[in-house]
Nucleic acid binder design. Structure first.
Lengths: 245, 245
DNA sequence: CCAAAAGTGTTACGGCTACACCCATGC
DNA sequence: GCATGGGTGTAGCCGTAACACTTTTGG
């Protein structure tokens, strides 16, 4: 690390991707062997995170981490919670890992949780020469620190937000089919939707624009492609007041 | 301060109250005179905030501040954002105040923003012997630091949440009238609602329970009182999936 | 010809909105 | 008796949900 870091504030990123009808999270392997016995003491996965640099904005720290780990820029990022319980790091495994890898760290660390939505076809998770891999949200490996809790809170936050704001598209390629969009909602919200009603709903949204192009893939009827237009969205957006408390 | 504080992490509370058909925020006066000339150098208002203590959970820090400033416990608190831009404190006035009052503070401070909803009839804002006062959200005084931005973000967050979660009641007395509840929504959301439709809506919500008691006040017809039951709410709650992205 | 997903309309019901008049009280 | 907010019913409309068959493609 060439720049000075703030030793008690870190940013952790829950990077969501969508593929094979599954919502996935990008995780990095954590491995530590006992020097003498060669025994594996720590062997699990963690989120991507890093301490904030001096003089750095939080959002910038999150962007930096994302750039490093996925190579991507200008992607959707949302700060969703701060994890700062005094007793977060009680597990001996985590304490050991921290002592070895981050000897200068403060005893009480505040982790600012961000989640991001990426088009996972654009991500090259191996760029950092570390073992970084997508895991389905329904089938996570063993996780270090309190990262399971962080992922769980991120998911809650995403589920709420995807109903209210036009962020689903961030998980798809620029051009997508209705089927992909529908499956995305079904997967994230864990519901079944009616194809005809879904299509009607979408066609009311002027900011989801049908193209005169079709996706052709194996064995099935070519499907029309759509794009999301943020310009149209911003222009036509009106708040509707809908109590459901 | 008897306990050791963490000098770069603070919690700031936006305390919302509702009275006289106005949404209000509790603010504390900040005053500093030039020792020689007697000239008033700093004279404005700030939110209630304090640095986090070593070993203290963030939520506990927020509770502590709330208890100190209002005397209240067990009240609604929501962490809504972290303010950590490197260049937050550029105003000379704020720098001066910080140097005089908090000489040991770090140069870059992360403020965890919480907002709370209180029954303002229960608050005694003068208990701390400082000049603390309610201000209508529509008529705020001059504010120190970036507290205007913090209040503004808190309000956005409240407006979203009040539509989704049963938190409006936190701003009213335990027993309230339909009129009070309706005015609360109208004020916070800045809309006009139909009295009859509102009343029908409320009567569908089984967790808003009519009492056989009436509020009697000057000159008007006595109004039926209601209470909110969290038990009933938790039992009958079901998520409804309502795209409006 | 088969498998797999794409594409497309109608109907019935329920929920939401719009709307106006009388009531109880304190002064 | 008047000013103030409390309390109540209906009708039309619109949006939502339920529902099934045909099309296109690749193998």
């Amino acid at each position: 690390m060439s720049e000075k870091t703030i030793n008690n504030v870190s940013v952790d990123c829950v990077i969501f991707g969508f593929s094979n009808n599954s919502l996935n999270v990008l995780l990095t392997e954590r491995k530590l062997e006992d020097e003498k016995t060669g025994e594996m003491i720590v062997n699990d996965f963690t989120l991507q995170g890093h301490h904030v640099l001096e003089g750095e904005d939080l959002d910038d720290a999150a962007k930096r981490i994302l750039k490093e780990k996925t190579g991507l820029e200008d992607i959707f990022l949302k700060q969703f919670y701060v994890f700062g319980s005094a007793g977060r790091i009680l597990n001996p495994k985590d304490q050991l890992w921290t002592k070895v890898r981050y000897p200068n760290i403060a005893s009480q660390v505040f982790s600012i949780g961000y989640y991001s939505l990426v088009d996972s076809s654009k991500v090259n998770p191996d760029r950092n020469h570390r073992y970084t891999k997508w895991f389905p949200i329904k089938d996570l490996p063993e996780l270090g620190y309190d990262h399971l809790e962080i992922i769980s809170k991120a998911l809650d936050s995403l589920r709420k937000k995807i109903l209210i704001d036009p962020i689903a598209f961030e998980l798809l390629s620029e051009r997508f089919t209705l089927g992909q969009l529908q499956t995305l909602f079904e997967t994230i919200l864990d519901v079944k939707l009616d194809k005809r009603n879904f299509s009607k709903r979408v066609s009311q949204m002027k900011y989801i624009i049908p193209l005169n192009e079709k996706r052709r893939i194996a064995k099935i009827k070519p499907a029309r492609l759509y794009i999301f237009s943020r310009e149209v969205y911003d222009k036509t957006r009106k708040e509707k007041i809908n109590f459901s408390f």
